[in-house]
């Protein structure tokens, strides 16, 4: 029963217009980043060709320095890692609120039960949100590989944004492609938990758009508070903002324990909050 319900939910999540719209917007932003990189690479290549005095190394504008999850400078990178909670919510974050409003919720739970409905809904929202964030990041890596020169990053490189204390930093310098793929996985998890923030919020708002903006608004407010805390307190060596922890190279270190602790907290809050709203809460 659960598996069948999950399959149906996944089909609904991946075969709707909003999922494709989200992928399209994410991909467009991703391509903006590639375009900016292409211009930079062309300019830098010309400089290197014409100059005999400076080092001819292309490391400063190589693939794993310019990748959207790492560079943190281009419009595409900043835009993507600012709006990713919206992109995660768009595909299917609206579904619980809409189904409740339209009465479809009552139809489904009378057939499969509230728990089965919630579990399948949660995972469908999680997976669609994760895909909406991780697919453009992966696409950016692959398309950037056509534009930027490939160099294995070295610790001595001044432009290298990942230093000691960052999650998987050793892998970044030894096997950057594996690092890239694993980071797409981390972004998948962030996209998933962000999208699931819509579930506990589903009953609180009248309009779909307000439900979809709950992850963005929550994360941006958290980001502001974390920025303040980092500037005032003594935690400036750690990146605390979940909004920026989706970046592989945020301004401060993102050790694995911090990354997964926060992911765990978000997962628990969204899961328990959603469970309360969908399963325990009275249908009204």
């Amino acid at each position: 029963m659960m598996l069948r319900c999950l399959k149906t939910e996944l089909r609904k999540a991946f075969q709707n217009k909003m999922f494709f719209c989200s992928l399209l917007v994410g991909s467009l932003i991703s391509i903006t980043d590639v375009a900016q990189n292409a211009v930079l690479v062309r300019r830098m290549t010309r400089i290197l060709e014409n100059s005999s005095e400076i080092s001819k190394s292309a490391e400063g504008f190589s693939l794993f320095v310019r990748w959207i999850a790492v560079n943190g400078v281009t419009l595409g990178s900043n835009l993507f890692y600012f709006v990713w909670p919206i992109l995660a919510a768009i595909p299917y974050g609206w579904s619980w609120a809409e189904e409740r409003k339209s009465g479809l919720y009552a139809q489904i739970v009378s057939r499969v039960g509230r728990r089965t409905y919630f579990f399948s809904k949660y995972w469908a929202v999680f997976i669609s949100g994760g895909a909406a964030v991780s697919v453009p990041v992966l696409a950016n890596l692959l398309i950037n590989a056509l534009v930027c020169p490939y160099c294995v990053p070295t610790v001595l490189m001044a432009a290298t944004p990942i230093t000691n204390g960052y999650f998987l930093s050793e892998l970044y310098y030894s096997a950057p492609w594996i690092f890239g793929l694993l980071w797409c996985g981390v972004d998948f998890l962030w996209g998933g938990v962000a999208a699931c923030m819509c579930l506990p919020a589903g009953t609180r708002f009248r309009h779909q758009v307000m439900v979809l903006l709950v992850p963005f608004v929550s994360l941006i407010l958290l980001d502001a508070v974390c920025s303040m805390a980092m500037s005032i307190g003594s935690l400036d060596h750690l990146e605390l903002s979940p909004l920026r922890l989706a970046l592989a190279a945020p301004a401060s270190a993102n050790p694995g324990w911090l990354l997964f602790s926060l992911l765990g907290i978000f997962f628990s809050v969204t899961f328990l909050g959603g469970y309360w709203e969908v399963v325990k809460h009275e249908l009204n």
């Binding site: 930079l40 320095v65 943190g72 400078v73 432009a159 301004a251």
Partner: peptide, 9 residues
Amino acid sequence: SVQDTMEKA
């Protein structure tokens, strides 16, 4: 500045 490849924005 996007030209500045060394620093984070």
